[in-house]
Simulated assay, not measured.
Amino acid sequence: MAKLIYVTNISLDGYIEDERGVFAWLPPDDEVFAFTTDLVRSVGTFLYGRRLYESMAVWETNTGLAAQSELMADFASAWKAANKVVYSTTLAAASTADTRLERQFDPAAIRQLKATASSDLTVGGANLATQAFKAGLVDECQLLIWPVVVGGGRPGLPTDMRADLELLDERRFRNGVLHLRYRTLGQ
Protein backbone atom coordinates (compact mmCIF):
# COMPACT_ATOMS: atom_id res chain seq x y z
CA MET A 1 0.00 0.00 0.00
CA ALA A 2 1.24 3.47 -0.88
CA LYS A 3 1.83 6.11 1.78
CA LEU A 4 0.25 9.55 1.91
CA ILE A 5 2.99 12.03 2.78
CA TYR A 6 2.54 15.65 3.78
CA VAL A 7 5.53 17.60 2.47
CA THR A 8 5.81 21.32 3.11
CA ASN A 9 8.19 24.22 3.51
CA ILE A 10 7.67 25.89 6.87
CA SER A 11 9.18 28.74 8.86
CA LEU A 12 10.84 27.99 12.19
CA ASP A 13 7.73 29.32 13.95
CA GLY A 14 5.44 27.00 11.98
CA TYR A 15 4.04 29.02 9.06
CA ILE A 16 3.90 28.24 5.34
CA GLU A 17 3.33 31.92 4.52
CA ASP A 18 3.41 35.16 6.45
CA GLU A 19 0.41 37.38 7.28
CA ARG A 20 0.51 38.94 3.78
CA GLY A 21 0.40 35.52 2.10
CA VAL A 22 4.11 35.68 1.17
CA PHE A 23 6.62 32.85 1.45
CA ALA A 24 9.64 34.88 0.38
CA TRP A 25 12.01 32.90 2.59
CA LEU A 26 11.80 29.94 0.24
CA PRO A 27 14.26 30.39 -2.62
CA PRO A 28 16.28 27.19 -2.20
CA ASP A 29 19.93 26.80 -2.91
CA ASP A 30 21.04 24.01 -5.25
CA GLU A 31 21.46 21.47 -2.43
CA VAL A 32 17.90 21.93 -1.12
CA PHE A 33 16.47 22.12 -4.64
CA ALA A 34 18.12 18.82 -5.65
CA PHE A 35 16.88 17.18 -2.44
CA THR A 36 13.34 18.42 -3.11
CA THR A 37 13.52 17.11 -6.67
CA ASP A 38 14.45 13.67 -5.35
CA LEU A 39 11.41 13.78 -3.05
CA VAL A 40 9.15 14.76 -5.96
CA ARG A 41 10.62 12.08 -8.23
CA SER A 42 9.40 9.31 -5.91
CA VAL A 43 5.78 10.53 -5.94
CA GLY A 44 3.15 8.95 -8.17
CA THR A 45 0.30 11.35 -7.34
CA PHE A 46 0.14 14.86 -5.90
CA LEU A 47 -3.00 15.88 -4.01
CA TYR A 48 -3.28 19.67 -4.10
CA GLY A 49 -5.52 22.43 -2.95
CA ARG A 50 -6.24 25.03 -5.64
CA ARG A 51 -3.76 27.68 -4.50
CA LEU A 52 -0.79 25.33 -4.29
CA TYR A 53 -1.74 23.66 -7.57
CA GLU A 54 -1.86 27.01 -9.36
CA SER A 55 1.59 27.93 -8.04
CA MET A 56 3.05 24.53 -9.00
CA ALA A 57 1.39 24.29 -12.44
CA VAL A 58 4.00 26.70 -13.82
CA TRP A 59 6.43 23.78 -13.89
CA GLU A 60 4.43 22.53 -16.87
CA THR A 61 2.81 25.66 -18.27
CA ASN A 62 5.91 27.91 -18.24
CA THR A 63 8.49 26.11 -20.36
CA GLY A 64 10.97 28.91 -19.69
CA LEU A 65 11.44 27.68 -16.10
CA ALA A 66 12.92 24.36 -17.17
CA ALA A 67 15.21 26.15 -19.62
CA GLN A 68 16.87 28.16 -16.83
CA SER A 69 19.08 25.35 -15.52
CA GLU A 70 19.60 21.61 -15.46
CA LEU A 71 18.30 21.50 -11.88
CA MET A 72 15.10 23.27 -12.86
CA ALA A 73 14.63 21.03 -15.90
CA ASP A 74 15.05 17.98 -13.68
CA PHE A 75 12.44 19.26 -11.23
CA ALA A 76 9.99 20.13 -14.02
CA SER A 77 10.38 16.67 -15.52
CA ALA A 78 9.81 14.96 -12.15
CA TRP A 79 6.78 17.14 -11.41
CA LYS A 80 5.18 16.54 -14.81
CA ALA A 81 5.67 12.76 -14.53
CA ALA A 82 3.26 12.47 -11.58
CA ASN A 83 -0.52 12.46 -11.62
CA LYS A 84 -2.27 15.36 -9.92
CA VAL A 85 -5.59 15.57 -8.13
CA VAL A 86 -6.76 19.12 -7.41
CA TYR A 87 -9.46 19.83 -4.83
CA SER A 88 -11.30 23.03 -5.62
CA THR A 89 -14.83 24.36 -5.72
CA THR A 90 -13.79 27.37 -7.81
CA LEU A 91 -11.30 26.12 -10.41
CA ALA A 92 -13.05 25.73 -13.78
CA ALA A 93 -10.48 23.37 -15.35
CA ALA A 94 -6.98 22.04 -14.78
CA SER A 95 -4.21 23.66 -16.79
CA THR A 96 -1.85 20.64 -16.74
CA ALA A 97 -1.82 17.12 -18.15
CA ASP A 98 -2.52 14.07 -15.99
CA THR A 99 -4.63 16.23 -13.67
CA ARG A 100 -8.05 15.41 -12.27
CA LEU A 101 -10.27 18.04 -10.67
CA GLU A 102 -12.34 17.07 -7.61
CA ARG A 103 -14.91 19.34 -6.00
CA GLN A 104 -14.65 17.88 -2.49
CA PHE A 105 -12.18 15.90 -0.41
CA ASP A 106 -13.39 12.31 -0.02
CA PRO A 107 -11.40 10.29 2.56
CA ALA A 108 -12.77 6.98 1.25
CA ALA A 109 -11.52 7.79 -2.26
CA ILE A 110 -8.06 8.60 -0.87
CA ARG A 111 -7.99 5.32 1.07
CA GLN A 112 -8.82 3.50 -2.17
CA LEU A 113 -6.15 5.45 -4.05
CA LYS A 114 -3.56 4.55 -1.38
CA ALA A 115 -4.56 0.89 -1.56
CA THR A 116 -4.17 0.69 -5.35
CA ALA A 117 -1.29 3.11 -6.05
CA SER A 118 2.12 1.73 -6.98
CA SER A 119 3.93 4.88 -5.77
CA ASP A 120 3.49 7.16 -2.79
CA LEU A 121 1.17 10.15 -2.78
CA THR A 122 1.77 13.58 -1.33
CA VAL A 123 -0.74 16.03 0.00
CA GLY A 124 0.03 19.71 -0.42
CA GLY A 125 -1.60 22.81 0.91
CA ALA A 126 -2.23 23.35 4.60
CA ASN A 127 -6.03 23.23 4.39
CA LEU A 128 -6.07 20.01 2.40
CA ALA A 129 -3.39 18.49 4.63
CA THR A 130 -5.48 19.32 7.71
CA GLN A 131 -8.42 17.44 6.19
CA ALA A 132 -6.15 14.46 5.48
CA PHE A 133 -4.72 14.55 9.03
CA LYS A 134 -8.21 14.69 10.54
CA ALA A 135 -9.31 11.73 8.41
CA GLY A 136 -6.31 9.70 9.62
CA LEU A 137 -4.85 9.43 6.12
CA VAL A 138 -1.38 10.97 6.57
CA ASP A 139 1.30 8.31 7.02
CA GLU A 140 4.32 10.62 7.02
CA CYS A 141 5.01 14.28 7.55
CA GLN A 142 8.12 15.75 5.91
CA LEU A 143 8.99 19.30 6.86
CA LEU A 144 11.61 21.54 5.31
CA ILE A 145 12.12 24.01 8.14
CA TRP A 146 13.58 27.33 7.04
CA PRO A 147 15.70 29.47 9.37
CA VAL A 148 13.28 32.38 9.58
CA VAL A 149 10.63 33.53 12.05
CA VAL A 150 7.72 35.30 10.36
CA GLY A 151 5.58 36.00 13.43
CA GLY A 152 2.22 34.89 12.04
CA GLY A 153 0.35 33.86 8.94
CA ARG A 154 -0.96 30.54 7.66
CA PRO A 155 0.05 27.63 9.93
CA GLY A 156 1.71 24.73 8.17
CA LEU A 157 0.30 22.09 10.51
CA PRO A 158 -3.19 21.51 11.88
CA THR A 159 -3.92 23.75 14.86
CA ASP A 160 -7.09 22.15 16.19
CA MET A 161 -6.08 18.52 16.60
CA ARG A 162 -3.35 16.35 18.02
CA ALA A 163 -1.08 14.11 15.94
CA ASP A 164 1.63 12.02 17.56
CA LEU A 165 4.74 11.58 15.42
CA GLU A 166 7.88 9.46 15.44
CA LEU A 167 11.07 10.93 13.99
CA LEU A 168 12.38 8.72 11.18
CA ASP A 169 15.10 10.89 9.65
CA GLU A 170 16.66 14.32 9.70
CA ARG A 171 19.03 16.24 7.48
CA ARG A 172 20.77 19.59 7.86
CA PHE A 173 21.60 21.69 4.83
CA ARG A 174 24.44 24.20 4.54
CA ASN A 175 21.99 27.11 4.22
CA GLY A 176 20.40 26.32 7.60
CA VAL A 177 17.35 24.45 6.31
CA LEU A 178 16.45 21.35 8.29
CA HIS A 179 14.51 18.41 6.81
CA LEU A 180 12.55 16.35 9.34
CA ARG A 181 10.75 13.16 8.37
CA TYR A 182 8.13 11.79 10.75
CA ARG A 183 5.82 8.79 10.77
CA THR A 184 2.37 9.43 12.15
CA LEU A 185 1.44 7.19 15.07
CA GLY A 186 -1.97 5.70 15.68
CA GLN A 187 -3.23 6.01 12.11
Rank of each mutant, 00 (worst) to 15 (best):
N9W: 07
V149N: 15
A115P: 01
D98A: 15
L128G: 04
L121A: 11
T45H: 05
V138G: 14
V58N: 06
G44P: 01
W146E: 09
T184S: 12
V148R: 10
R103A: 10
F105S: 05
V32M: 11
Q142E: 15
D30R: 13
A126N: 07
A109C: 02
D160Y: 00
A117C: 04
T89Y: 05
D98R: 15
V123I: 14
I5Y: 03
D164G: 09
T159E: 15
F133P: 01
Q142G: 04
A81G: 08
N62V: 12
G49V: 00
A78N: 07
K114Y: 01
A57K: 05
R172N: 15
T36R: 08
A117P: 03
L128Y: 03
L157N: 15
P155I: 02
G186F: 03
A73E: 07
K134F: 03
A78Y: 05
L71C: 03
G136F: 01
P155C: 00
A135S: 10
L12F: 08
W25N: 12
D120W: 02
A108H: 07
T184C: 08
I110N: 06
A92R: 12
Y182G: 08
T184P: 06
T63R: 08
A92N: 13
F105Y: 13
E102L: 09
T45N: 01
R111S: 10
T63A: 11
R172W: 10
G14H: 12
K134A: 14
S55T: 15
S77A: 14
G44Y: 03
A82M: 05
K3L: 14
